[in-house]
Write a protein that binds this DNA or RNA. Structure first.
Lengths: 211, 211
DNA sequence: TAGTCCATGTGACAAATGTTACTGTAGCTA
DNA sequence: TAGCTACAGTAACATTTGTCACATGGACTA
């Protein structure tokens, strides 16, 4: 059994053996470096990727190049947007940037469509992915629609800590500001208040979550 | 041919005859009155509805009962959220309220799952619906993430005019404020500015779009 | 006609957020 | 060590949005 197969089986335990064999036979293994843009708003979608290792962030771009974080992609997941795009030439509505070096399997569109009918486990994966991503985006809507920046920041920090599995968040205030579409000064200000409330401890290039 | 069949064929022209026959055989026709809540956040989803007539609005509820408009549903459409929910007991993440009296066909969950495999035209409809709704929600994210209230109001008015197919929008400032999650005074203020710029004419309970 | 809603207009102020400008400081390296 | 750069802190101010208070005026009804 190849290493890719092992990794596929580990990260996508619900895939049937048939499906994994097909992936092996027809799809290519690829790696991406931190900072790489895997998919960009407006580009035609030609394939989707299954993440085996690393982390991607999916964000929406504003007219003036602002970024707005939607969610992270991790091993065992796939880009929802590219999973469902009719055979027509569909362009991407989002940008995907590598946060941590990524190992992934690339799957051409044509195969995906076929698999939906032939592989129950693929079908279920797609449905599940789509539903959970939709919910995640709805939660993002909640945050920006109903909550002020201080709450959003808190939510962001918690999500980040959860994603990396630790309480130390290695991000500059500038980076956070970018993802929440605000300015560094605002983030600094709010973080200071959070520190006064005992919710975080601030260090250079690191925020220690106390909750 | 029954009236429902005719209406189904007209509003869902891509459905195969087989599919329409199945719908006829197993699904029930229902009507809802303006103001009815068809689906509420937290409720279990037991079925989906295909709209034949009227208009629904789909919105997200805040912790304190605030509303936030996501999109409208019109004849020929279906509620995306309820289209994809695994057989498990899934609760709704949104609320659907009738804007204009609705005629619809109700489809039980169990059938939907079967049809995905057996009816290509249903499968394509589901995929298409999901994709377009996802995009619509992403556009909503853009609006609240990147744009100020004046732009959002303008976008809202245009979308509303498009949905009803006319330039006269019969809404009070209060109703608009609710859907954009702001206050009436803010809407009044911004509308006045828009009137000064010649973009609208304001009347009692009506806003005339000039663009 | 007087009274009562309801929708709207508007001024004054409060609070949140965005912007500008400047300071300090840690870490790197020439 | 001096100089550079990136990061962080913060004061001061502008702008946007939210809130309160109150006025106006149309539509309807007792």
């Amino acid at each position: 059994m190849s290493e890719t197969t092992i990794s596929l089986k580990k990260n996508f335990p619900n895939f049937s053996n048939d499906l994994i064999e097909e992936i092996e036979a027809h799809c290519s293994f690829q790696t991406f470096k931190s900072g790489d843009i895997v998919m960009r708003t407006g580009q035609y979608i030609k394939n989707t990727i299954l993440i085996l290792k690393g982390q991607l962030k999916i964000y929406r771009e504003g007219d003036d190049g602002e970024e707005f974080l939607l969610y992270y992609l991790e091993p065992g997941q796939a880009c929802a947007i590219s999973l469902i795009c009719s055979s027509k030439n569909q362009t991407s509505q989002i940008t995907a940037k590598v946060v941590e070096d990524v190992e992934a399997v690339t799957i051409p569109l044509t195969l995906m469509d076929k698999w939906m009918m032939n592989h129950r486990s693929w079908y279920e994966f797609v449905i599940y992915t789509y539903r959970t991503r939709f919910e995640e985006v709805l939660e993002v809507v909640d945050n920006i629609a109903f909550r002020a920046m201080d709450e959003r920041l808190e939510f962001y920090l918690k999500r980040h800590a959860k994603a990396c599995g630790c309480k130390e968040i290695n991000l500059s205030h500038q980076e956070i500001a970018l993802e929440l579409n605000t300015s560094r000064e605002v983030i600094s200000r709010l973080l200071k208040k959070m520190e006064q409330r005992g919710l975080v401890r601030l260090h250079r290039n690191q925020i220690e979550l106390m909750i």
